[in-house]
Write a protein that binds this DNA or RNA. Structure first.
Lengths: 251, 251
DNA sequence: TACCGCTTGTGAACGCATGCACAAAGTCGG
DNA sequence: CCGACTTTGTGCATGCGTTCACAAGCGGTA
C-alpha cells in the first residue's frame, strides 16, 4: 500500500471518504487516461462485454498494460486476480472518480464557427455535460437558438452563469476577447475553463484552465514532419558516418 | 553539454546540421511550449517590441522563467547576457526549428460542424498551414466549396493527397469512420494526423498522431470540480477529522 | 580600461511518471 | 483438497522533465 503518505497532515481517513483522499493523489496524466479507459469501457459495455483483462483493455486504449493497471490502482482495487475486471464495476468507479455522477452545466462563449460546432455537439460528447447557456457579443445573434439553446448577450454572463449554476465555461471567442470573457466567467464563479482561443489566460489560483490550441498542435506536427525529413535526408546521405555498404552494425 | 549522448550511433556532426541533431533532443513538452513562445513573440513583434528578457517572455507565456531559458537553450544560445533576447531572432529560430519555413499542406476529412469550422479558420491559425483539400462521404457535399475549397469525395483521398502533397491530415469525422479514414490517409503517405474523433487510432510507427479530445478535456475539468468540491466540504466540516473541538474522527 | 550590475545559459538536485518483474490471490481441473 | 495456471497489484529502478542556483558573459559607466 502506498497510502500513509507521511505528510504530517493526513491521519487516518474514514471509509467512504477514502476516495476523496485518493483523488488528490492521482497524477494528472493518469486522470486523462482514465477518461480514455472510460470511453473504451463504455463501448465494450454497449457491445455486451462484461469482463476484460488489463491486457485487452490496455491495447484498446493504446497504452502499456502495466501503466493501465497502475492507473486503475490509483482508484482502488476492483479487479479479480486470475480473471480481470468487471466492465460495469470499472465504469461506475471511474465515473465516480471523475465526478461524472453529478451533471456539469456548460456555458459556451463565442458563437462563431467553433461555438456553433460546440453547441451543436448535442449534450457534448459523453453524457453529463449539458450545455445550458450560450453567449456572444453580436446583438444579431441574441435570441437565436443554436443547438436548441437561445444565445444571450455577453453582458449577461455573470447573472446567467450564477443562475444556471454553470460549472464549466468554454471560451470560443477571437483571441482579443478571450481574457475579458475569462475574467467575467471567473467573477461569475466559474472555476473551470476550457479555452480554445490562442491566448495565455491569466486566472486566480482557484480556477482551473485547460487549453485546446490548434495552432500549437499543428506546429508540433510540423516539428515532427521536419524531424522526419531531416532524418530521412541524413540516412540517404550516409548512415551517420558509419559505412554505407561496409560493416553496417545496425540491427 | 548534454550532447554526445552515448548511444553509439552519433559521431560528430557538421556545423549547419547541428540543428537537426538538436531537434532530436528537444523534449516533446518543450516543443509545445516553443509554439506558445512563438505566438507571444509574434505578437510582440507586431507591437514593435524588439527586445525581451526571459522574465518578461516567461510571464507572457505563463511559465517559469528558468524553464523558458532551458527551453530556448535546446534550440541554441541566441540571447545576450545582461540584455535579453532579440525578438526577431528568436522568432526566426523557433520557426526554423518547428519546421515552419516550409508550408505544410493540410487536408480536413469530415465536413460536419467541426470540419466546417476548421475549413473556415482561413489558412489556419498562424500562417504556414494552408488547407488544400476537404473530404466527406456525403455525396451531396461534394463540389460545394467550404472556406474557398471544394469538397471531394472521401474515396479520392489517396489520389488527391498524393497529388497535393498533403503532409498533415485532420480527422473530424464521426468516431466509427475515424480508423478507416486514418488508414486511407496513411496509405496516401500522410505521416502526421490530428485526430478530433474520440477514438484511439492504430497507426504504424512512422506516423505521428495528435489527439484533441473534447470529452477527455471536459472530464478532466469535471475531476477538478469534484476534487474542489470535496476539499471545500472537508474543510467546512472540519479539517480531516482532527479536532475542531473534540476528537471527531468523522464517520 | 576597469569595475559593476544585470541577464543568460546550464550543471546538478529533485520529483514525477513509466516500465519491469514478481509476489499475492484468485480460478479451474483433476 | 490440491496443484497448476492466470492475472492483478505494486515495490523498485530507470528516465524524463522541472526547478534551483550560480558562474559566465555582456553593456554601461566612471
Amino acid at each position: 500500500m502506498a497510502s500513509q503518505r507521511g505528510e504530517g497532515e493526513t491521519t487516518t481517513t474514514p471509509a467512504e471518504a477514502a476516495d476523496k483522499e485518493r483523488a488528490r493523489a492521482i497524477p494528472e496524466a493518469a486522470v486523462a487516461r482514465l477518461a480514455v479507459y472510460l470511453r473504451v469501457l463504455s463501448g465494450m459495455s454497449e457491445s455486451g462485454v462484461t469482463a476484460v483483462s488489463s491486457e485487452e483493455l490496455s491495447q484498446a486504449a493504446g497504452v502499456n498494460a502495466a501503466k493501465l493497471r497502475k492507473d486503475l490502482s490509483y482508484i482502488g482495487s476492483y479487479g479479480t486476480r486470475g480473471v480481470g475486471y468487471d466492465v460495469e464495476v470499472l465504469v461506475s468507479h471511474i465515473e465516480r472518480i471523475l465526478g461524472l455522477t453529478r451533471n456539469h452545466s456548460v456555458a459556451v462563449v463565442g458563437i462563431g464557427n467553433l461555438g456553433h460546432a460546440l453547441a451543436n455537439y448535442g449534450g457534448f460528447p459523453g453524457r453529463g455535460f449539458p450545455v445550458t447557456a450560450l453567449f456572444d457579443v453580436d446583438a444579431d445573434l441574441v435570441g437565436i437558438p443554436v443547438g436548441g439553446i437561445p444565445v444571450n448577450h455577453i453582458d449577461e454572463i455573470t447573472a446567467i452563469c450564477r443562475e444556471r449554476e454553470v460549472s464549466i465555461g468554454v471560451i470560443a471567442t477571437p483571441p482579443p476577447a478571450a481574457q475579458s470573457v475569462c475574467d467575467r466567467l471567473v467573477s461569475a464563479g466559474v472555476q473551470c475553463i476550457l479555452n480554445f482561443a490562442p491566448v495565455v489566460l491569466q486566472v486566480p489560483d482557484n480556477v482551473e484552465v485547460r487549453k485546446v490550441d490548434l495552432a500549437v498542435e499543428m506546429q508540433i506536427l510540423s516539428f515532427h514532419v521536419a524531424r522526419r525529413a531531416d532524418e530521412a535526408a541524413s540516412v540517404s546521405v550516409g548512415n551517420n558516418g558509419l559505412g554505407v555498404d561496409g560493416m553496417v552494425i545496425r540491427p
